[in-house]
């Protein structure tokens, strides 16, 4: 399959595919981070995670419309406002869902999975009713358009670089929150020993709600970033949910570093294969690869051997 290309062409292809893999990686990381927090820390499977992401995307779409309508002068900066709004909207909805639904199902993980699937159906139809079945896209501000020429063959789009930067920034922020802040310590202590955490005065119900809200909020931000590189439809979220779950499981559910590493592996594998095979076969092979590895190492790539 490589015979038709010269070495330098091949190098460039790998570089370009590597870069588009990096964009995919960024989307995976942003989506998976929220999921990793919810699944890894709380053990809750949230099948509506994709819909929380799409909520963020729609919020961004609305914000960009408002800006171009009323404040065209500030249009260049709308994205940052949109991102914050997306976080708040998705986070608030997440906390509501936790209060109304999830908290009643903590001991029944499989039932949570089904209930959140129901939620995802409702949200999808809600989006369809409000925004229509067609995909919507946002207008990128000027400074995000165009691309940077690196060599004569390799060029990288600016919006891609932006999304990547965002993914890195948010990962660092989350890591700091989980491992440095007082709240992060509370979350991890609740995960490890709920009764004990409750006994030392941590309001475990509140920690649960905030954790779930944070995970959903990050999904909202992911959706916001997603608008930079693609358009949004009511069912866009569902397309990513299985991939994202595999990313989280593959990385070892409780490890943020694992999540990032596995997002990198999967996205790179997929985008590199995509160039040589059809898109669908690349996806099949990637999924098969992940499932195969999980069968060999069910606890995921990064997890500790602990005393039971």
């Amino acid at each position: 399959m490589f015979a038709d290309y010269t070495t330098s062409e091949l190098m460039s292809i790998f570089a370009m595919q590597g870069f588009s893999g990096l964009i995919l990686f960024s989307v995976f990381v942003l989506m998976a981070l929220g999921l990793a927090i919810i699944f890894g820390q709380m053990g809750v499977i949230n099948m509506a995670h994709g819909e929380f992401m799409i909520l963020g995307a729609y919020v961004t779409y609305l914000t960009s419309n408002v800006f171009s309508e009323y404040m065209p002068a500030l249009f260049g900066g709308y994205f940052f406002v949109a991102m914050i709004l997306a976080f708040i909207a998705a986070g608030a909805l997440g906390m509501l869902v936790e209060w109304a639904m999830i908290r009643h199902l903590y001991h029944r993980p499989l039932d949570t999975l089904l209930a959140t699937w129901g939620l995802s159906l409702i949200l999808q139809q809600l989006y369809r009713t409000i925004f229509g079945a067609r995909e919507v896209g946002v207008t990128l501000p000027d400074w995000l358009m165009g691309s940077v020429q690196i060599t004569d063959i390799i060029e990288v789009p600016i919006n891609g670089i932006f999304v990547m930067t965002l993914a890195v920034g948010i990962s660092v922020l989350i890591a700091a929150l989980m491992y440095r802040s007082r709240w992060g310590i509370q979350v991890r202590s609740v995960v490890q020993n709920r009764p004990m955490a409750g006994a030392v005065g941590i309001n475990t119900a509140r920690v649960d709600r905030l954790t779930f809200g944070l995970g959903c909020g990050i999904a909202g931000v992911a959706g916001s970033a997603f608008t930079m590189i693609g358009s949004t439809g009511p069912t866009s979220g569902q397309l990513y949910i299985v991939d994202t779950f595999l990313v989280v499981v593959f990385g070892g559910a409780a490890s943020l570093l694992g999540t990032i590493a596995s997002a990198f592996t999967i996205s790179q594998a997929q985008s590199t294969m995509e160039f040589f095979l059809s898109g669908s076969m690349a996806k099949v092979l990637t999924l098969l690869f992940v499932v195969f590895i999980l069968m060999l190492r069910p606890q995921g790539l990064f997890s500790l051997k602990v005393r039971r």
Partner: peptide, 28 residues
């Protein structure tokens, strides 16, 4: 899966992935 004691939500997710794989394969 079961010989390696994979169960619960992990099994659910993996079977879901298998469904995704087969669909993509059939369509592709």
């Amino acid at each position: 899966m079961f010989k390696r004691r994979v169960g619960g939500v992990y099994f659910a997710i993996i079977t879901q992935a298998v469904a995704a794989i087969l669909t993509i394969l059939i369509i592709g």
